[in-house]
Simulated assay, not measured.
Amino acid sequence: MATPMQPGIVLAHKRVGRTSFAVVREFLTAARAFRDRKTPAICHGGVLDPFAEGLLLVLVGAATRLFDYLHDVPKVYEAVVRWGIETDNGDPTGRIVSRGDASSLTPERLAGVLAGFVGWQDQTPPATSNKRIGSERAYEKARRGETVTLPPTRVYLHEAAWIEHRLPEQSHLRIVARGGYYVRSLARDLGRTLGCFAHLAQLRRLSIGPWHDPGPDGAKLIMGRDLLPWLPARMLDDSEVGALRRG
């Protein structure tokens, strides 16, 4: 793990079964080991569901102020859609709520339906999403057995393409989406549109903007001018630095 005492963005890999918050806690624990230093603020740069794996951005110190700048950055995912079964949370850990017949699916039909989801859409998040309802997260209410109804949100899908099919069981998908997009909802809505139901069986986040998943044994710290490289930037001279420090 990169030293969490250094301010910046750490490219970390989240394994299947772990929560994003567990990864953040790991960094906090490491930071608190330095008893002679103040523990920096640490947060993630966008949650990844427990059943999913891949790139998780961990923001450390002053870099936590960059959170809002990361929302609109394109994110690349690969996913496996399981046909014929819809679950209450849209992933394989959920309770089965609907079954359907996927025997009539063809690659051509799937390509046509998927194309209709590219661009701006109104998307209803899963009941177990990270969205807030008052002072609580939706998933907290759902896990207590409460009925959760979330309003649709405006989302954007840049690109979507099927990689391979093993019909009628499942299909492998690659998408590029803006922040706030739920791939679980895409799988659910594809199944409903096709009339056979579906859920997301696997999900991996490959990249966020210019940054790629370092893999299970890797982590990389991004600092300085490498932060937010898609935004305009210029070097400051000494007088400008002094003026900036004085406010």
Rank of each mutant, 00 (worst) to 15 (best):
G61Q: 10
R37L: 14
D189N: 01
P126D: 02
G90F: 00
D49M: 07
G218L: 04
L114P: 12
A233F: 07
M235N: 08
R109S: 09
T87M: 00
I163S: 05
Y77E: 06
H44S: 14
S239V: 07
R99M: 06
K38R: 01
L203S: 07
V183N: 05
T39F: 10
P4C: 04
A198E: 12
R184C: 01
F117W: 11
F21W: 10
W120M: 11
L228C: 13
G224S: 13
F117K: 09
E136G: 01
Q121M: 10
A31N: 12
Q202I: 00
T147H: 08
R109A: 10
T147C: 01
L57M: 05
L194Q: 08
F51W: 04
L56H: 12
G215E: 10
T19D: 02
G100L: 03
A115L: 14
P151T: 04
A160K: 12
G54E: 14
G218F: 08
S185E: 06
G224F: 15
V10Q: 01
A115I: 06
A138E: 04
L203C: 04
L157Q: 07
T193A: 00
M1Q: 05
A33V: 12
M223S: 15
R246H: 10
D72T: 05
L206C: 15
V97R: 05
S20Q: 05
D122S: 04
D91P: 01
R174I: 06
A187G: 01
L114W: 13
R99K: 00
Y181P: 07
G61S: 10
W211G: 11
R37P: 03
P107C: 04
L200S: 00
A12D: 09
I208C: 15
L55F: 09
I208K: 07
V24R: 03
G145M: 05
G61E: 07
S20M: 09
S185C: 08
E86G: 03
R95V: 04
G90C: 02
A177D: 04
D72R: 06
F67Q: 14
S103M: 06
A31I: 13
D226P: 01
G191D: 03
P232G: 14
G247F: 12
R174L: 06
V118I: 15
G116H: 09
P152G: 10
A201H: 00
T124V: 15
R82L: 02
T124E: 01
A201E: 06
F67V: 11
P152V: 08
P168V: 12
L66A: 03
V241E: 09
I175L: 15
I208T: 15
N89M: 01
P92C: 05
V23W: 12
R204H: 15
P229T: 03
G224T: 14
L55N: 03
F67S: 14
G242E: 15
A33G: 15
M5I: 03
E169H: 08
V155N: 08
G209F: 07
I222L: 02
G218R: 10
E26R: 13
I85C: 12
E146Q: 11
A52S: 14
P92F: 02
A177F: 05
P232D: 07
E146D: 08
W120V: 13
I175Y: 14
S185P: 11
F27I: 02
S20L: 09
A62H: 10
W211L: 01
T147I: 11
L105T: 13
Q6A: 15
